[in-house]
Amino acid sequence: MVTAPSERLILASKSAARRSMLSEAGVSFAVQVADVDEDAVKAVHDPADAAGLAIELARVKALAVSRHDADAWVLGADQTLSFDGGLVSKAGSLGEARARLQAMRGRTHQLHSGAALAHKGQVVWSGVDTATMRVRDFSDAFLDAYLATEGEGLLACVGAYRLEGMGAQLFEAVEGDYFTVLGLPLWPVLAELRRAGVLRS
């Protein structure tokens, strides 16, 4: 590990993908899931500004945890999906996931991964990165097999897919950073952690 022992980092996210990214990058951290009302944040945000919403949700999560542990550095993160001019939320059922993937078939959409770093109850940095996802014209037979294999775990993913799993077969191309697709703009986050002294430079 290359984390400086004098500074503590808390990840305010329950995402297994984000935990894995940070761990594999050699970052030491604790996890404390932020207790925030995401629907309330979305209700007052312009649905056309999906990238801005990703940042706002990340900021709210980082602040929620930082207020209870002011001495730690808190990393909040969230991901939004924009498609066909609107904001897409997580599917509530496999039937809804099927309909969404059918609508996306042969078209493109954008994933926006936002992150925010808070310290002493204030956000000291936030940023967002976007990846464009080009979905291939897959068959209904593939979609049936995909849903059967992945199951209800897809409901935890905003696009009803995991690129690190069978969901990779849904796409013909991705324009953007792989880490952004997984849910974290990792390079800017690591740069800020170095600036903050959480990681050695």
Rank of each mutant, 00 (worst) to 15 (best):
R162S: 12
V88G: 05
M166G: 06
E152P: 07
G153R: 15
Q110E: 15
P188F: 07
A4R: 15
G121W: 04
R18N: 04
L22G: 05
V74L: 09
V123L: 08
S82K: 08
V135F: 12
G114Y: 06
E38V: 02
E175G: 09
R98H: 05
E175R: 13
D35R: 02
V60I: 06
K14H: 12
L186N: 09
G85C: 04
D78K: 00
L193N: 06
Q79Y: 07
V189R: 08
L11K: 01
V174F: 03
A145W: 11
L87H: 08
G165C: 02
G176I: 09
S113L: 08
V88K: 09
R19H: 13
G106A: 06
L11H: 01
A148K: 13
G92L: 10
R59S: 08
D35I: 00
Q122E: 15
F142M: 11
K14F: 06
A115L: 01
K14W: 01
A91H: 05
M1E: 14
T3D: 12
L143N: 11
D46S: 06
A116Q: 03
L94W: 03
L143M: 10
V88W: 10
G153W: 05
E192D: 10
G52Q: 01
L94F: 07
S113D: 05
V198G: 04
